[in-house]
Design a protein around this nucleic acid. Structure first.
Length: 261
DNA sequence: CTAGATGTTAAGGT
DNA sequence: CACCTTAACATCTA
């Protein structure tokens, strides 16, 4: 689930459930989710503090405390957040449980343990250390253009490379390319300015619509290819057969007659 | 039982 | 050096 639009939803969820209230308990239920921070250090940074702001960059969620520490969350392929009041209802795959003085709890869930939890002094330091590119919804067109044309390689792997542009994963990369009518393996250096311009606008369009529709695929337009990620399905545009290939060792769905650039 | 699944990263190959 | 693919992580589902 968690690509940029999903993490944007999680940011809002964190905001409404967990801001401006004192953390009364921190339980680490599985230390494997912690990256570069010990359970005791995490507790020291969060206990008796409160979160005062949230921020998203790409697929990372940052929650700043009223002290130095910033909590950083990455959800991998199967992570989420769940707020609840009755601890008997503690959900499965709860790896970290934060309790607040208002009696509510926030569980950091991760079924497959692929994401991670960090503590950093500052978001910008963290972004630098992890060499993340600009956020896909904030990057300006000029920067995007130069990122795409500067290095060679297939366009899809480039869109998904978090060090170039942060936030796009396998699903949204397919959608953006479908709407831009560009083949996932197209050599990005070969793309014309007008193709990259279209790609830029479609990237913004797809991500923005996805956020507006609460990152819920059930609410996405039928004309999107996400709803047709099955080999036997038909292209919503030309009614031709959907193709399936491997690109960057991930499954790509696309329409070979519509995406021929 | 096997393969694949929305992510990232290290390692090896071309 | 630049780019590509694969394996690994842990777990569930088709």
């Amino acid at each position: 689930m968690p690509e940029l639009p999903d993490v944007e939803m999680l940011k809002r969820y964190f905001y409404v459930t967990s801001l401006h209230r004192r953390v009364s308990d921190v339980r680490v239920r599985d230390v494997r989710i912690l990256k570069g921070v010990s359970a005791s250090s995490l507790k020291r940074c969060l206990l008796e503090k409160s979160f005062e702001s949230t921020h998203r960059h790409g697929k990372y969620l940052f929650a700043k405390t009223n002290r130095e520490a910033v909590l950083v969350l990455h959800f991998g392929m199967s992570g989420s957040l769940r707020s609840f009041k009755d601890t008997k209802r503690d959900p499965k795959y709860d790896r970290i449980l934060l309790s607040f003085e208002d009696g509510f709890h926030l569980a950091i869930l991760s079924q497959r343990l692929l994401g991670g939890v960090w503590i950093t002094d500052s978001k910008d330091t963290f972004l630098r250390e992890h060499a993340l590119g600009p956020d896909a919804l904030s990057v300006d067109q000029k920067t995007f253009q130069s990122i795409i044309t500067k290095t060679k390689g297939g366009i899809k792997s480039k869109l998904m490379n978090q060090k170039l542009i942060a936030g796009i994963g396998n699903i949204y990369a397919d959608e953006i390319l479908f709407q831009s009518r560009i083949h996932p393996l197209a050599e990005s250096k070969e793309l014309k300015d007008k193709d990259i311009s279209r790609l830029y606008h479609k990237m913004n369009h797809v991500l923005q619509i996805a956020v507006d529709r609460h990152a819920d695929p059930a609410q996405f337009p039928f004309s999107w290819i996400v709803s047709h990620r099955i080999e036997t399905d038909k292209c919503p545009r030309c009614r031709g057969r959907i193709s399936k290939i491997k690109a960057a060792s991930r499954t790509s769905y696309f329409c070979s007659s519509c995406q021929n650039i």
